[in-house]
Design a protein around this nucleic acid. Structure first.
Length: 362
DNA sequence: AATGCGGGGTA
DNA sequence: TACCCAGCATT
């Protein structure tokens, strides 16, 4: 009977049971025994920690959190602080827009809300630096609201628990709905923190400790696939590297030799300097044999350009040639009117590599 | 939907 | 090295 009772326990209870036994003590937390008695942490503390924890590890945040509370014990103290001092105190934590928004948010809370944070998700979401995640986390943890908290950890847990094949970020609405279904009315803040603790300590990106997981009997990914392959990510296919050479010829009147690309295909109909084909072969950049005409070509470095489907590295060669040397299909364009040509960015980069002042005058 | 934004930890 | 981290704002 006890066994059946345990199996019948729903996922939230199972997770909270695990959390009660394995949660981490953190400076901004109220311990689960206190939380079970209805205690909620100081919203200012929760907000400060959540902003600091955006894309930042718990370990890195601890010292900063303590320092900020010492310098500015209340949100109104922070609102009254000099922005420069806030920036200095934030230094080293990274993502400095967070610090600027932190100050703005404190000012808004002090000025518009009487020094008290809004106690619902929508009100919080309207404040500077508070997005979907932080609004939900603050509402759940500090105000005991049944908000669906979805961060990188929760995305990983949910994607594995339900073996979600939809790649991120498209899967986020689906994941949010599942989290919403799972979130209990009782202890929603602890549930959110438990999900995140689970993702941080058990359901890790690499080599998850599935044998220790409170969801191990329910996890679809564990049952049917390799949990480590979740969450699925958008196919950011690696851009192949292509190489080529570009030849920038300058005549005695300071004109540059240009030609027109084929009308169809990549950069169709645009203007270019002569060059090799762009190939995946490593020797693509050394084909001086592809020079449009004989000249004392000298290498002058390389440029890189990212296209939608590949990355291009062009070795650039430059030569000063006698006036009126020509090749088929091209023309000599005066330096002053280069800017008015239909030169795609990659070609402007190549020309600027050969002639640094090419586009700076005229 | 894609980018830029810091700095540090892990496999 | 590559990926990831209690994401947000902007375009």
């Amino acid at each position: 009977m006890m066994r059946n009772t345990l199996i019948a326990m729903d996922a939230a209870d199972r997770l909270l049971n695990w959390y009660d036994r394995h949660h981490r003590e953190l400076p901004w937390r109220v311990s689960p025994p206190m939380a079970r008695n209805g205690a909620t942490p100081d919203p200012y503390h929760v907000w400060l920690s959540e902003v600091m924890l955006q894309q930042t590890t718990v370990q890195a945040v601890k010292a900063y959190f303590e320092k900020f509370l010492t310098l500015w014990p209340t949100v109104e103290d922070l609102a009254a602080a000099e922005t420069e001092d806030v920036m200095k105190a934030w230094a080293g934590l990274g993502y400095y827009a967070r610090a600027r928004n932190l100050k703005k948010c404190a000012e808004a809370v002090a000025r518009d809300h009487g020094g008290r944070f809004p106690d619902r998700e929508e009100g919080l979401r309207a404040l500077p630096g508070i997005g979907d995640y932080t609004a939900a986390a603050l509402a759940a943890i500090a105000f005991n609201r049944r908000s669906a908290v979805l961060d990188g950890n929760v995305e990983r847990v949910i994607s594995r628990l339900f073996a979600i094949e939809t790649p991120l970020p498209a899967a986020k609405p689906e994941m949010r709905a599942l989290v919403s279904d799972l979130t209990p009315a009782d202890r929603p803040g602890d549930f959110a923190q438990a999900m995140m603790d689970l993702g941080a300590t058990i359901c890790t990106p690499k080599r998850p400790a599935c044998s220790l997981c409170p969801f191990r009997a329910n996890c679809l990914a564990l049952a049917t696939a390799d949990p480590e392959t979740f969450p699925r990510k958008g196919v950011k296919r690696e851009k192949p590297l292509r190489r080529g050479a570009a030849f920038v010829a300058i005549d005695s009147s300071n004109a540059v030799y240009l030609q027109k690309r084929a009308e169809t295909g990549l950069l169709g109909g645009m203007t270019e300097v002569p060059g090799t084909d762009w190939t995946a072969r490593r020797d693509g950049e050394t084909s001086i044999e592809a020079q449009p005409f004989a000249a004392p070509w000298e290498p002058c470095g390389a440029i890189t350009h990212i296209f939608t489907h590949f990355e291009l590295r062009l070795s650039v060669y430059r030569a000063n040639v006698a006036h009126a040397v020509t090749a088929a299909n091209g023309w000599w364009e005066p330096m002053a009117s280069l800017k008015a040509q239909a030169l795609p960015t990659v070609m402007k980069k190549a020309i600027a590599q050969a002639i640094p002042h090419a586009f700076k005058t005229g």
